[in-house]
Write a protein that binds this DNA or RNA. Structure first.
Length: 574
DNA sequence: GCCGTTTTCGGCCCGACTGTTTTCAGTCG
């Protein structure tokens, strides 16, 4: 991945220049360029060949030359030289929360620690307090920061973030003088992993809210406690930031606190060009200082000449340009979802009988639920063989006769075997309404082999959907190597659907792959992969991913009515 | 280092909190 290599080099150059005390705007230029390259939808190497690098925002003559050098030689002399001049320990120290470039450099100049352990020893023996700007408190904070680095600042998955967030929302909501409350930050943007939780509160008594927040029983440590902004760490080690604002600046504060940082910087730059200033209190005219928008998010965007941008899109990956031109997608919403296309029953490793699954689906207001139990080769999950699958079909049809306005679809999560063939014979697959195929073995095969396997599975006319396509488990297992561009081309040709698996540790496809799939004209579906009933709730996470992938209602299979869905599924078999 | 219907030079997002100061620099989001 050349893009990521360029991104990393540019970001590291920015760090190195920061240590040197270089021009801050030059540093920003490198960071901005790093992001620009990462978000590129086209191939960098192609842009080099076509001489179009300077068309990338934030890339000028100099950086274009540096990108060219990286592509052509695999490294960058300017970067290597900078690296040689900067002690590694300084970069390492900058990883510690609370230590920035200035402090790291001061520490190095005074004590020359070789690594973080040596710094820790110095701090423990109270040696670092006394140099200019550092006293006992800073020393203490450095030790705390080192603890955190040692633990590894893990990001939590969306599911966990949702539950911690709701605890705090419940607590804050019940306080007197709290008029409204909103989750912000990356959780509101539905990022697949969350580092900290941001909550915005409307109140005329900010101090009271702050006091109650830092005294909450879930709080282990107070990181900052100001009059309108406080941060704590929970018993689980999760950082939660709460910000209190007045009702009249709610919209502006919500935009600011939702981010992303890159999105905010972009809209503030845009504001500058219009002679305006944006902060968390509103949009202001530079000349008069007059507040022209602040109460609602819509007002803030509109004051900048933009359509309202849904939180899931606020990553500065083209949404601002689209909002300017009125070209934002009309994103799919949870209410558009008519059914779940991947659930298990107690016929394999699910918890609930078929009949109960039907009741659960109907209770949610769904029109259908696709029962997709595992197949024979997946023995650990009690996979079904052909005979059992045929029996299950009979059972499902029988149950369906007794329910109105809802249907269980006969499906399977059939294994894609190591040669790309399916674990169930076509003559049985033919009997099913829907065939979901996925890989559960041979993860470590080569990219070509794995890609070939999935292509072969898609070429089977009975394969409706490829489930959890990348196989990743967030924080546990890397995605397997697949050529997604190739896969999406074949998916389009063969009318095969790609799944957005909404299981919290999977979220697979991820946002960038979803957006890419859409570019190829591939249809997607959301399945929760439910084994126990509460997991059906994960549909909301799946919709979040879909929205982050810029999907509209028409891009998804399970926004179709039951009859349209059946028609669409039959089309591939003809 | 980038960028331009005010500019090819002089700008570059903006503010809260902390710890150290005695008016502010550093860090963070």
């Amino acid at each position: 991945m050349k893009k990521l290599q360029i991104r990393d080099i540019f970001n590291q150059i920015a760090d190195l220049l920061e240590i040197k005390g270089d021009n801050p705007f030059r540093i920003k230029a490198y960071r901005r360029a790093a992001q620009s390259v990462e978000n590129l939808s086209s191939d960098v190497e192609e842009l080099v060949r076509e001489g179009k690098l300077e068309e990338i925002p934030g890339i000028g003559k100099d950086l274009a030359k540096k990108i060219k050098e990286i592509i052509e030689t695999g490294n960058l002399k300017y970067f290597d030289d900078l690296m040689k001049k900067t002690p590694k320990a300084i970069l390492e120290m900058m990883e510690i929360p609370g230590i920035g470039p200035k402090t790291a450099k001061a520490l190095y100049d005074n004590f020359k620690p070789k690594n973080i352990s040596q710094l820790e020893a110095l701090a423990r023996s109270h040696k670092i307090s006394g140099i200019p700007g550092i006293k006992d408190k800073t020393e203490e904070n450095i030790l705390k920061g080192i603890e955190l680095v040692k633990k590894g600042k893990e990001r939590m998955n969306l599911g966990m973030a949702v539950s911690i967030n709701s605890e705090f929302v419940r607590l804050l909501k019940d306080l007197p003088h709290v008029k409204n409350i909103s989750t912000a930050g990356s959780l509101r943007r539905m990022k697949e992993t969350i580092r900290d939780i941001d909550i915005l509160v409307i109140s005329r008594k900010p101090e009271e809210v702050m006091d109650a927040f830092v005294r909450a029983p879930m709080v282990k440590e107070i990181l900052a406690h100001g009059s309108t902004k406080s941060s704590i760490r929970t018993l689980e080690g999760v950082q939660v930031d709460v910000r209190v604002v007045d009702e009249k600046s709610y919209g502006a504060a919500l935009v600011y606190f939702t981010g992303s940082k890159e999105h905010n910087i972009h809209i503030r730059r845009l504001a500058n060009q219009l002679g305006l200033k944006v902060n968390e209190y509103g949009v202001f005219e530079n000349k008069t200082g007059k507040n022209i928008a602040s109460r609602r998010e819509e007002d803030v965007y509109s004051a900048l000449g933009l359509d309202f941008i849904p939180p899931e899109l606020r990553e500065d990956t083209g949404e601002i340009e689209c909002a300017k031109e009125g070209r934002l997608p009309n994103l799919v919403a949870l209410k558009d979802i008519r059914g779940d296309l991947h659930v298990h029953s107690d016929w394999s490793d699910g918890m609930h009988p078929l009949k109960e699954m039907a009741t659960l689906g109907k209770e949610r207001g769904y029109e259908y639920l696709a029962i997709c139990d595992h197949t024979q080769s997946l023995r650990v999950a009690g996979g079904l063989n052909e005979k059992e699958l045929k029996e299950q079909i009979k059972e499902i049809r029988k149950i369906n006769k007794n329910i109105k306005g809802f249907e269980l679809l006969c499906g399977t999560e059939v294994d894609i075997l190591s040669d790309g063939s399916l674990d169930i014979k076509d003559e049985v697959l033919k009997e099913l309404d829907i065939v979901v195929a996925s890989i559960h073995s041979g993860f470590k095969q080569s990219k070509d082999k794995l890609t070939g396997r999935v292509i072969k599975a898609m070429e089977n006319k009975y394969t409706s959907i490829i489930a959890h396509p990348s196989g990743r488990l967030i924080g546990e297992r890397a995605p397997y190597e697949l050529d997604f561009d190739e896969l999406f081309k074949v998916a389009k040709e063969t009318n095969t659907v790609f799944e957005i698996n909404a299981f919290p540790s999977r979220l697979d496809l991820n946002d960038t792959n979803i957006r890419n799939a859409k570019k190829y004209g591939v249809t997607l579906s959301i399945g929760t992969d439910t084994h126990i009933k509460d997991q059906l709730d994960a549909m909301a996470l799946g919709v979040g991913m879909a929205r982050r992938g810029w999907l509209e209602k028409g891009d998804l299979l399970n926004t179709l009515s039951l009859s349209s869905l059946k028609k669409k599924l039959k089309r591939k078999r003809q």
